[in-house]
């Protein structure tokens, strides 16, 4: 009876060993390309096109040419005349 139990235990041990071996083989058969990160750059190297800051364009403060010396206040007087007429 004892021998029978011992044989059973050995058989179970053998079977579990076989299953473990098979699962190890399966892992090795996994294609290498899927195990390696694809397009991410290595740590520490940054994409310069993303990190470089281009200076924001500064809008002009006033009209550059023709009427920069014009006060435009005749129109203001006309607006007042129109509103109070």
């Amino acid at each position: 009876m004892t021998r029978l139990i011992m044989a059973g235990a050995l058989a179970l041990l053998f079977l579990s060993g076989c299953i473990q071996y098979q699962s190890t083989q399966g892992t090795l058969e996994t294609p290498i390309s899927t195990a390696v990160p694809s397009n991410n750059p290595p740590v520490g190297i940054q994409n310069p096109s993303i990190t470089e800051e281009s200076p924001a364009p500064q809008p002009p403060l006033a009209e550059p040419a023709d009427d920069e010396f014009n006060d435009g206040l005749e129109d203001a007087i006309q607006d007042l005349e129109d509103a109070y007429s």
């Binding site: 006033a62 203001a76 607006d79 007042l80």
Partner: peptide, 25 residues
């Protein structure tokens, strides 16, 4: 009319403000 005149006053002040901005330029 009151509202219109108040708005015209704001517009006049904007024209004055515009002279300040030209001075900054």
């Amino acid at each position: 009319k009151q509202k219109l005149r108040a708005n015209v006053d704001k517009l006049v002040k904007f024209r004055l403000y515009q002279l300040s901005q030209k001075a900054l330029y």
